[in-house]
Design a protein around this nucleic acid. Structure first.
Lengths: 202, 202
DNA sequence: AATAAAATCTACTGATCAGTAACTTTTTTT
DNA sequence: AAAAAAAGTTACTGATCAGTAGATTTTATT
């Protein structure tokens, strides 16, 4: 065991701490957003000093970028594990449900921020950009397949469906229903899926 | 004319400047959001010094509150001017279209922010709260009427429709389509209206 | 056990920002 | 025309924050 065992344990502790930092970051980001989140918030939430964060991440931007990368990796993993026999529309619905449940448990959306500043920051993060392009590619493929299969409206441009779909993954109605209505998680998810695909009309 | 005329002109100049401040605030809020908007930003945009803003508004919160009040007054005025013969669903569609066009011209959404900090700030502004309640009341009335008329899905809770509807007035897909697609304003509006009421399905 | 290296922390720096004090300019009043 | 008041500005204050320097503690090595 000797030397190698001790080194491996130390690496594991480092990674565990890094995960704790990313978990805390995710929670604080979803509650406060990028601009109001401070490095002291994150450090306090983990129970370490702020400069210790810099052992793991070069800067606040780096930290947030990694948290976003982890989130998108989660979505990509979810897609990779999806049963192959689902239709493209069912896959889109399953991913939307996954994203909604992540959010209802305190996670955060993976739509690129509408804030130009945050978007610009994330666009400098190659790891993030590559993952977003991969995820986009997959979702676009589902959309065009579902349009061909007659499950999604073929008269709507792919862009319109893509951006609307992303927007439904972080629909603020979710937060409002959670805060102000008596609906439980399952009902919220069910209604949100319905509104996304069927709209509001009768 | 004498004294009264001069006073009235001075008051008018004061109000013109106040409107210019609110216009600048609206533009900057829609681009940067509340947290990143600074009083210096607003002052520079108007062409006056920062302390001069405090002749009109007590604080940053007061300024932003008034900008939001003005926006909701705009929506209420739009509703008041609506032809009486439109169905409830048509009224909802017309208001959504109005809101989307305001946003496409650089204005900002009137959905209460999902940021707890901004929400809390606005909840302290009685002028704002009263107007939101009035607007909510009217929109809820349209929703229940449209459900009864069979135009909106009666199986969806009013809350779900209300919050989803509000969310569609500030759908981030609009910004993304504006930035990244070749669609013009009218097409964006048309598609967004369609997605809101009919959803994404075929 | 003593020393060196690594890790973590407290205290600090420089930049930013809301709001204010003091100064200057403009307008009004006498 | 001179004085007073009002309006507007420059310069300032205190608080906050990302990131860092130096001090302290912990761990590893001899």
């Amino acid at each position: 065991m000797g030397l190698l065992g001790k080194l491996s344990f130390k690496d594991q502790a480092f990674r565990l701490r890094e995960d704790a930092i990313l978990d805390a970051t995710t929670r604080i980001l979803s509650g406060k957003g990028f601009d109001l989140m401070t490095m002291d918030d994150v450090a306090n939430a983990v129970g370490i000093s702020k400069p210790s964060l810099y052992k793991h991440f070069k800067s606040k931007d780096d930290l947030v970028g990694e948290a976003m990368v982890r989130l998108i990796d989660g979505a990509l993993a979810f897609l990779a594990d999806m049963p192959a026999d689902l239709s493209a529309k069912q896959k889109l619905a399953a991913l939307l449900e996954w994203a909604l449940r992540v959010r209802l448990e305190g996670g955060m959306p993976f739509l690129p921020s509408t804030s130009p500043q945050v978007r610009e920051m994330l666009m400098k993060n190659l790891k993030y950009v590559m993952r977003v392009m991969k995820l986009n590619g997959q979702i676009e493929k589902f959309i065009t397949s579902a349009q061909k299969a007659g499950d999604l409206n073929p008269a709507l441009p792919v862009d319109v469906i893509l951006f609307s779909y992303y927007s439904r993954t972080c629909d603020p109605a979710v937060e409002f229903l959670q805060l102000y209505s008596k609906l439980g998680t399952d009902d919220i998810v069910t209604h949100m899926l319905h509104v996304c695909f069927e709209g509001l009309q009768a």
